[in-house]
């Protein structure tokens, strides 16, 4: 296997790890199930593409703007969650994919169906990154995402999200401004997804509306659910498995939607906590091995 191929697979896997860890904040902690995460991914990719190609910014100068834009978009697109219950939220997040896709397809500013091409590789001390360099850059962002997300998992904000995610009425009685924290969850989740989008755009070199459809959102949710909602290790593991599997088993590639959709449905039915989630059979077995029934760690929080 050529090293370039391995690095490319590693880069894409890393990008999806950022996406699943970011979705974990929204869906794992705050229990806002989103089937529209690819929309935030897309907005990050397009924002970085436009800022670098049309406005001539460097990758590095564009990145803080991208994060700012996706954070704001997260706030805005999170607003419907204040008005609808969990079931309807799922429907409205499905809608996000199509709204964002349509905007990119039908407005020439976003390149229409021709997309945006010629997105430059990030430079490092004046030299464009190669495949290995970009893999290193992605790895750096994966580590930053995991570390910051791990820090967040031990904060009051995470606790508030867990609380209203389970019971909004009780959470309000604990002094939690549920509306504000829902928006926080969308904003934080979207900010990370924006970074993933920027990385994707600059690695691939072009963005088209079809790159970020509904099926992508299903992929991302399937990864998180497979690994285990509510845990960072689950998010990372799910992305690893579902991103690598098609590389090992070429036939799967033609049936990606079937695999993602099938895994999502089967896991929700039979192992809703995922393979490495809290209280999953693997984790329970592991804890029994360690002779420890209740964990005090924040990561295993609830």
């Amino acid at each position: 296997m050529p090293i370039g191929y391995i690095l490319t697979v590693g880069t894409f896997t890393g990008i999806f790890m950022i996406l699943t860890v970011s979705l974990n904040v929204l869906t794992g902690y705050a229990k806002q199930v989103s089937l529209g995460h690819a929309a935030f991914f897309a907005i990050g990719a397009y924002a970085s593409a436009i800022l670098t190609v049309k406005f001539g910014l460097s990758f590095w100068a564009a990145l803080p703007c991208v994060v700012g834009i996706t954070t704001l978009v997260g706030v805005f697109l999170g607003l419907p969650s204040l008005r609808v219950s969990h079931d309807f939220l799922v429907l409205s997040t499905i809608g996000l994919n199509f709204i964002v896709g349509s905007v990119f397809r039908y407005f020439s500013f976003f390149g229409g169906s021709m997309g945006i091409v010629g997105i430059p590789m990030p430079e490092f001390f004046g030299h464009p990154l190669g495949t290995a360099g970009f893999f290193g850059l992605t790895l750096l962002f994966v580590i930053l995402t995991i570390l910051t997300s791990f820090y967040f998992s031990r904060t009051w904000g995470r606790l508030a999200m867990e609380a209203f995610g389970e019971d909004e009425v009780a959470a309000k009685a604990m002094g939690i401004n549920v509306a504000k924290f829902k928006i926080y969850a969308f904003a934080i989740s979207s900010a990370y997804a924006g970074i993933a989008g920027a990385l994707w755009a600059h690695y691939v070199g072009s963005v088209f509306p079809d790159n970020f459809g509904f099926d992508r959102s299903i992929d991302i949710l399937a990864m998180l659910v497979l690994g285990g909602m509510g845990t960072i290790r689950g998010a990372v593991f799910g992305a690893l498995v579902l991103q690598m599997l098609p590389e090992g088993l070429r036939v799967i590639q033609n049936y990606r939607m079937l695999v993602s959709g099938g895994i999502l449905a089967l896991m929700i039915l039979f192992q809703p906590m995922g393979l490495l989630g809290r209280g999953s059979f693997l984790v329970k077995g592991f804890e029994r091995l360690r002779g420890r029934l209740v964990s005090h760690e924040a990561e295993d929080m609830p």
Partner: peptide, 18 residues
């Protein structure tokens, strides 16, 4: 969760509960 009530404002949510 209840004890955190004073930390649900400003930058409080980004402080650790440990």
């Amino acid at each position: 969760v209840a004890w955190g009530h004073r930390n649900y404002y400003g930058l409080g949510p980004f402080k650790p509960f440990g």
